[in-house]
Design a binder for these strands. Structure first.
Lengths: 218, 218
DNA sequence: ATAAATTATTAGACTAATCTAAATATTTAT
DNA sequence: ATAAATATTTAGATTAGTCTAATAATTTAT
């Protein structure tokens, strides 16, 4: 059994390592809103519990056991986000903080029933895949709008940034999951992208940064 | 904002004081599974925060602010219990521990949406009233079976004891909420009660203790 | 290849919540 | 009304997680 805090460290290491790259102390401190010294302390503890492989001055990766826990926290987080949006009608930019708390409710049975209640959703409200009860994750072929060429189109299927202001911005431009976009022009001097949504006449322009953070399937 | 632990103390004081009677250190220690010394420490802290009125060697009562928080924790607990039983199909003896965790999720908006989602239930799965968002509580005229006379009948509407074994026992005897019982006989030597459920032929016998813990309306 | 800059770790201290053991109040029984 | 029993509080220590300041390792730049 892990504490709330331990679960957050494991989840963050999982997300930062994207597979298996070692994660640095400072990276963790930045995301967990804490100090490097605190991170070092916690890494020692998690290492003793054999949830991570930790080499001083080098970095940290998850062990198999640690990864299992991390994936489970991610599963819980995404299922609760889905619940909040689909059942309680919250908007996609409102659910993150609540899910951060709900993800630490410990009962496995509860999460599995919730999963069943919602008919086993595969993606959360931001398009991120929801691991199943065995930790299996569906992987879609996502790519950012910034990698499309002029005249290419795609269906918005995920986002790489989850901050409420960014999500509200997308909502305002109708750049929501499921909508189809087509790239009309890529401006040479700043790589900003001009595109249309759902075949509309209306052309909208988004920055290169934004284009990197919106994921499409073709 | 209170910690998890502070909320548990306030909730327990609220339940033990049944209105406004002062609660003792040892009573709290027993229910909170902790030691009297720890309780004293926490009472000092809650007193400084003006959530309780605490007099050394005498006892503790809630302030108005403390009571508001306590009622809100109770509201959250009972709404989540209702959710677990009505939406996720848990049984009434399975939900307590999960609700103990869920009740500490802080968002007020979340609880209010949950309330709306379930269409504002008035009672939880054990017949306890669910306070509304303003802290108002519906009070029913409950009395224990032990106070009925021979030939009197009533509808089971609540329980005074929430332990899984007791709830499972009631389920086995079909003594579930909503069922009608009639007292056939009260044995003189131990006050055990013989009764029928839903007009059945079948007579069942329960101890005086059990009869005290089952609440009926007439 | 060495100095400077960056990154990470250790040392020592703090807070919240808890504990045991000792001391003190209160209540009960004679 | 006093002794014994019970209930409560204080004193001092412990654990988890965090912090700042000082130190050490590593990387980068010259």
């Amino acid at each position: 059994m892990q504490t709330f805090t331990e679960e957050n460290y494991l989840k963050t290491i999982y997300k930062l390592s994207e597979g298996s790259a070692p994660v640095s102390t400072n990276q963790l401190a930045a995301i967990l809103n804490t100090k490097a010294a605190s991170v070092t302390d916690m890494l020692k503890k998690l290492s003793e519990k054999k949830l991570i492989d930790y080499t001083r001055y080098y970095g940290v990766t998850l062990t198999e056991v640690g990864k299992k826990i991390a994936v489970d926290v991610v599963r819980r987080h995404r299922l609760w986000e889905y619940f909040l949006v689909e059942k309680l009608n919250f908007k996609w930019d409102e659910v993150h903080d609540m899910a951060e708390e709900l993800e630490h409710i410990s009962s496995t049975e509860l999460v599995d029933r919730l999963d069943q209640f919602m008919d086993y959703p595969a993606y959360d409200p931001h398009g991120d895949p929801i691991p199943d009860k065995h930790g299996r994750i569906k992987h879609h072929e996502f790519k950012p709008i910034s990698q499309l060429d002029v005249d290419e189109s795609g269906v918005i299927s995920g986002v790489r940034e989850h901050s409420p202001p960014f999500l509200q911005y997308l909502e305002k431009l109708n750049l929501m999951l499921g909508n189809q976009i087509r790239v009309i022009e890529i401006l040479a001097y700043d790589q900003s992208v001009v595109l249309t949504v759902n075949q509309s006449e209306n052309k909208i322009s988004i920055s290169k940064e934004a284009a990197k953070n919106i994921l499409v399937t073709s």
